[in-house]
Each structure stands twice: as C-alpha cells, then as structure tokens.
C-alpha cells in the first residue's frame, strides 16, 4: 500500500517535472516571461496594461455581469422551483411514505407474530400442565395399584403363613401323637422284655403322658 502510493507520487512528480521542463525547453521565453509576470504582479506593474489593476474593479464589465447574473440565476431559480426540486421532493416523499408503510406493515406483522407466539406459549403451558396432570394421575394410579398389590400380597402371605403354621402345628401334633404311641409301644415292649409283665395299654398310655408332660 505504502509502496504503491509512493510509486504513484513519484510518477506524478516526474510528470510534473517533465511538463515544466518541456515547457521551459521548448519556449525559453516562457519561463522568463513567467518570472517577469510574477515579479510584475508582485510589484504592481502587472495590471498596468489593462485599466485599473484588478479586473474586478473595471466597471466596463459590470453591466454585462449583472445582467447575466440575474438572467442565469433567474433561470436557475425557475428550473429549480418548477422542475427539479418538486421532483426530488416527490421521490423523497414517496420513499418516506414507503418507509412509513413498511414500518406499519412490519409493526402489524410483529403484532401478529407476537400473538402467534403468545398462542404458542399458551399451548405449551397447557400441554405442560396436561402432562403434569397425566404424570400425577399415572403416578397416583401406580401407587394405588402398588399399594393394592402390596396389601393383597401381604394378605396372601399372611394367609399362607397361617396355613403353614397350621400345617406345622398339625404336623407337630401328629408328630407328638406319634411320639406318644411310639414311646408307649416302646415302653410296653421294654417292660415286657425286662420284667416280663405285659402292661395294659391304658396304663402305659397314662404313664407316657405323665412323663411327656413332665418333660415338656
């Protein structure tokens, strides 16, 4: 970037040198003339050959300049006020209107979008509430079911436990009855063998009962 602009500047400078140089070479009088002219102007001689120094102060041209100033300015004023400015104004107004319209439209669209958004949010909250309700319901149902099953199971288990206990008791009773019979028979047999006396079943029974009672 820097290099480029440097290059450009040096090209410009070279062209300027060339131009001035060519003029100075082609027309040596030119440079001298110029030097004189500058000097003349600075010393006040330059203006001498036309009347009154500053051309601005030469009244000869005043009439024509005033005339043409008013003619051209009047023409410009007419062109501007009748043709050009209304056109620009129209375009600017049309744009303003369009922008205002578009803004209105955008406002309407925005309101619409907001309504849609609200509806959407309402739907979302409803759906969420529904979901909560469904979840709560199913949780409650599941809980109830669980509780029901639990109690059923518990009842079943209790019943079974009771049945089992009864069975155990019955078995125990049976076993205990068996023990009595067996021990009575064994005692009878043992007495018969040892003593040779055959005891009556009733007697053995009462004795065994007594012993059993004692042991128990």
């Amino acid at each position: 970037m820097r290099i480029h602009s440097l290059k450009r500047w040096s090209v410009c400078a070279a062209v300027a040198v060339l131009a001035v140089g060519v003029v100075a070479v082609v027309d040596p009088a030119f440079a001298q003339d110029a030097a004189h002219a500058v000097g003349d102007a600075a010393t006040g001689h330059g203006g001498e050959h036309h009347s009154g120094g500053l051309p601005q102060l030469n009244p000869a041209s005043y009439a024509s300049q005033i005339f043409w100033t008013f003619v051209t300015f009047g023409l410009l004023l007419w062109l501007m006020s009748k043709v050009a400015l209304p056109r620009v104004g129209e375009v600017l107004e049309a744009r303003q209107e369009k922008i205002a319209n578009d803004l209105d439209k955008a406002g309407a669209l925005k309101a619409e979008a907001e309504a849609v958004m609200q509806a959407y949010e309402k739907a979302i909250t409803e759906a969420r509430a529904n979901a909560h309700k469904v979840i709560a319901d199913s949780v409650a149902a599941a809980d109830a079911e669980g509780a029901r099953r639990n109690s059923e199971l518990a009842a079943d288990l209790a019943q079974r436990a009771r049945a089992a206990e009864e069975r155990i008791q019955a078995a125990q009773q049976a076993a205990l009855g068996n023990v009595r019979t067996v021990s009575a028979e064994a005692a009878q047999a043992a007495v018969e063998r040892l003593v040779g006396v055959s005891l009556g079943a009733d007697m053995v029974g009462t004795t065994v009962d007594a012993v059993l009672k004692e042991r128990a």
Binding site: S61, S64, F67, W68, T72, F73, L76, V83
Partner: peptide, 24 residues
C-alpha cells in the same frame, strides 16, 4: 449598455446547466 456574453456569463450558464443536469 454592453451586455456582451463573456467568459463570466459562459461559466454562469455552465453552472446552471450542470446544477440542473445533476438534479434532473
């Protein structure tokens, strides 16, 4: 009165032509 069309008038005309041209 000398109401000659001068270089001054020429530039005035050029100015209004340019200005009007730009706008129109």
């Amino acid at each position: 009165l000398d109401l000659s069309f001068t270089n001054s008038a020429l530039h005035m005309v050029a100015a209004i032509v340019l200005a009007t041209g730009l706008l129109i």
